[in-house]
Design a protein around this nucleic acid. Structure first.
Lengths: 337, 337
DNA sequence: GTGAAAGCGCTAACAT
DNA sequence: ATGTTAGCGCTTTCAC
């Protein structure tokens, strides 16, 4: 049986409160007493029972991170950053996978498991704007991503439209005229895909290039395999193109793969730009020009906002903040300047 | 304030015990009573307080997964598999990053945070065989990886020697003679690197090919960048080689990148094989021939063993099992048959 | 089939 | 500066 505060108190010949004071670094403890207690703690190998502490104090020191899946590199790297940032605040992270499934996302929001945590960082991919009211929960919550705007919670997001516009302008600026876009989600009005498509259209318009729906290709999840498949369809359709904007990097690596299989040279025949700046983009062949959407900063701000909410004790922020972080075009070989 | 069992009991006009029985699906409750209780639960939006349940029952429903970092694709995909498997058992997963640092690995083992969980799956990368006794902890623990063998805990591992031997034999069998190995850890006697190096040597010996230390290159962590750097050194050294065995895929993608920069064709000039079968291996250019070490199976067995330990209630398994899962050579373009 | 009561280990008032 | 005491919300005997 593990030692309790009681055992330590008994061995040290003090009250349980004094032991608690020592454990919690309460300052007003005589040095002699403190040392006696510390000796007893060491002798018994005492470790505080966090469940009891949680029950009593209402704080678990655990936050939840809810995301689609870790095998998507973007989310793995995001999770890594969130865990590191949480650690700075003495928090550990429970990860819940939703598989981008709306029903599972809703279920997680109302599960007692999440109520056990001190707060949740939530990156939905299945829910949409109409589900905003489900975010009215009674625990601290920070929303990530582009599925829901103007909701009742703090929100951290990237500049999708501006970044996509910059990506497209970068391709047009390097002399390309027929820019294909891969990864659209036609049934979406919001969401990363819709926003990035909008940025793409804005760039075309402002450059005076006609929008050609033939050049826009849809996929479901942004996996390599889907990027590859969509590119095969694009090629088979016979439409002419000299550049590709892939809506995320994983997808775009699949795109590059198929372009090269088809004998096209990158960037000579087709320039390619991605979105996310995952680690492998730098080591792809050719290395992938892409958008760095500020993932580290997003993780940092999300944790900070959550910690702030937890600390405020308020049920919900009166004025939910909507923060956006900056982006950057990372120029590599697949689309030189 | 959230509703408690008490509130529900009062509203339903029954005792707290009866509510508890309903919540926990205890069979011997009259239907009428059950329905009344369920109505009260619904009306109050009651959700059990998991901290209280944990304190009382000694079970948290949380397991820990301790690993180097999630931005290494192998570990991200492993974590994804562990979380999915844990979910099947109704468990959630806390992820702790150690950065492959021995001190942090040891710290995690003795932290109260881990004692709060029902058990831990631990993948060390900094600890070594001499640290085996630190694994004698008083909570359920399953060890992954190749750093420590014969320890006092259940252990799930891959067939490093055999798989590395198979990889090397595959290259030799396709007519290569000068097989470089990248990613060695010279100061290791155990560990994935040492074991895979041993498999490499075995293959050379049994094929009657002399072992040339010039062909063996070290790196620290198996990141893309390190694979790239080691390959540059290999090339600069002027030594002759016609194949590369990279000790993991991430590293090997860096290798391929540099080989191609240097004007070498893969596989015509240099055949390349990796180890891990991460998702991007399939979409690399050229696609990467590699070893599938059975990651999914490892995750599955690890969780199952942990659940078994948790269920047994025993302090430690009397006869720790050491399980190995099978591997497979995945043939792709970088090293055809 | 249901109720009463004890107590898991801790923190937080309050008392001294 | 230290001790006493009352719960946090639940599960779990043990009655009835």
């Amino acid at each position: 049986m593990a030692a309790t505060l009681h055992d330590v108190a008994q061995l040290a010949g003090v009250s349980i409160k004094t032991v608690s004071n020592v454990v919690n670094d309460y300052p007003h403890v005589r040095t002699a007493t403190r040392e006696r207690v510390q000796a007893a703690i060491a002798q018994l190998g005492y470790q505080p029972n966090l469940s009891a502490r949680t029950l009593r104090s209402g704080r678990s020191g655990v936050i939840g991170l809810v995301l689609p899946e870790l095998s998507l590199s973007y989310f793995a790297e995001l999770a890594d950053a969130v865990i590191a940032q949480a650690e700075l605040h003495g928090l550990v992270v429970i990860i819940e996978r939703t598989g981008a499934d709306r029903a599972r996302e809703l279920a997680v929001l109302s599960s007692p498991r999440m109520r056990m945590t001190d707060g949740v960082i939530f990156s939905p991919l299945g829910m949409g704007q109409a589900d905003a009211h489900f975010l009215e929960v009674d625990f601290p919550l920070v929303l990530l991503g582009e599925r829901i705007f103007g909701g009742p919670v703090d929100h951290v997001t990237m500049r999708n439209i501006e970044a996509a516009r910059a990506a497209t302008e970068f391709l047009l600026g390097s002399g390309r005229q027929r820019v294909a876009l891969i990864g659209a989600h036609p049934d979406e009005d919001l969401g990363s895909a819709a926003l990035r498509l909008e940025g793409y259209k804005e760039a075309l318009a402002s450059a005076g290039v006609a929008y050609d729906p033939e050049l826009v290709r849809s996929t479901t999840l942004w996996h390599r395999a889907n990027g590859a498949a969509a590119t095969r369809e694009l090629i088979d359709s016979g439409v002419d193109f000299d550049a590709v904007f892939g809506l995320n990097d994983a997808l775009t690596l699949g795109v590059m793969r198929v372009l090269q299989e088809s004998g096209r040279r990158i960037p000579e025949d087709v320039a390619v730009i991605g979105f996310d700046n995952i680690e492998e983009a730098e080591y792809a062949v050719p290395s992938l020009t892409t958008i760095d959407p500020g993932r580290e900063l997003i993780a940092q701000r999300a944790v900070d906002l959550l910690v702030q909410q937890i600390g405020s004790g308020a049920q919900r922020p009166e004025h939910p903040t909507a923060e956006t972080v900056g982006f950057e075009v990372i120029v590599r070989e697949s689309a030189p300047a």
